[in-house]
């Protein structure tokens, strides 16, 4: 039995694709057979973040339309052979995704894969609602910033009413908060909402905090999911997130500022 996870946020640019890539890679590194699907039809980017953009031949819409088999479209990751990527179509429009088609592909994927990560597009249109429709778990990616928090709350409303689990009266989707681009220093200065503030407002189970980090951009520059960068704070934070998702008890890191010496406290550093 496989588990379907949607990575969603409503707002764009908060780190959904980065998270999908890092999370899927993290699951694969833990030994699970994992597939990650790009639902952003027309604005494909997961392939670029995963570093397999030159290997795309067929895509999600080709499979839905029967123009290619699932195995032809899946791209096996070169670093982890238990991780596969299903790219979005770059040329079709969003309406090419149909509920029946998506369901068929997810069913076929769940025969092989233990975890299926759905990278949702921004917004609340077809691609986004279909990415979450069949989900068992939802990772709500949020920045500590007013419009992102508001949009996340809106997504929670949609998750609770317009998903398969909601419509069929099944156990509701498990919702997790992932706070990204977090800066403990700016929180201390009162310039940024704190983890506690965002949790107060959204009342969600906190899956993790990803610090604002240079390593995220350099990971996307090179097409390497940041989880593989074990030296970076963001990479470690994503590894923690995956362990927590899998049920391990892992204390939260990167929420407090690193301790600095007196010299740098006084003179900046």
């Amino acid at each position: 039995m496989s588990r379907i996870i949607v990575v969603t946020s409503g707002k764009g640019g908060v780190g959904k694709t980065t998270t999908s890539a890092a999370f899927a890679m993290g699951l694969a590194m833990k030994g699970y057979k994992t597939a990650v699907i790009d639902f952003d039809v027309g604005l494909r980017n997961l392939d670029l973040i995963m570093g397999c953009e030159r290997r795309v031949v067929y895509d999600f819409v080709n499979v839905i339309n029967g123009e290619a088999t699932l195995n032809q479209a899946l791209i096996r990751d070169k670093r982890r052979d238990n991780l596969s990527i299903l790219p979005a179509s770059q040329t079709r429009d969003k309406e090419s995704l149909t509920q029946e088609g998506v369901e068929r592909v997810l069913n076929e994927l769940s025969e092989t894969f233990e975890y299926i990560v759905c990278d949702s597009p921004a917004g609340i249109e077809r691609g986004a609602t279909l990415a979450m429709y069949f989900a068992d778990d939802a990772v709500v990616v949020t920045n500590p910033e007013v419009s992102s928090v508001r949009d996340s709350d809106r997504m929670l409303g949609i998750l609770a009413s317009k998903s398969r689990r909601a419509e069929q009266g099944l156990e509701p989707i498990k919702e997790y908060l992932l706070l990204t681009r977090y800066s403990p220093e700016r929180v201390r200065l009162g310039e940024m909402l704190s983890v506690a503030d965002v949790q107060d407002i959204l009342s969600l189970h906190l899956l993790g905090v990803i610090p604002e980090s240079k390593s995220v951009l350099s990971a996307s520059n090179s097409g390497t999911p940041v989880t593989l960068d074990e030296k970076s704070d963001a990479g470690q934070a994503y590894r923690d997130v995956v362990r927590r998702y899998l049920g391990e008890r892992v204390p939260h890191r990167f929420v407090e500022e690193e301790k600095k010496g007196l010299f740098s406290r006084l003179f900046g550093g």
Binding site: E145, V146, V149, R150, D153, R154, G157, V187, R188, L189, G190, E191, M192, L193, S194, D197, D200, I201, L202
Partner: peptide
């Protein structure tokens, strides 16, 4: 950093709490 009550973050939190409660 000694003046947390007038910080922009606390303004943000207050605005969000009101807005989110209303939208819910």
């Amino acid at each position: 950093s000694r003046t947390p009550n007038t910080s922009s973050a606390s303004v943000a939190k207050e605005r969000l709490q009101i807005l989110v409660a209303h939208e819910r």
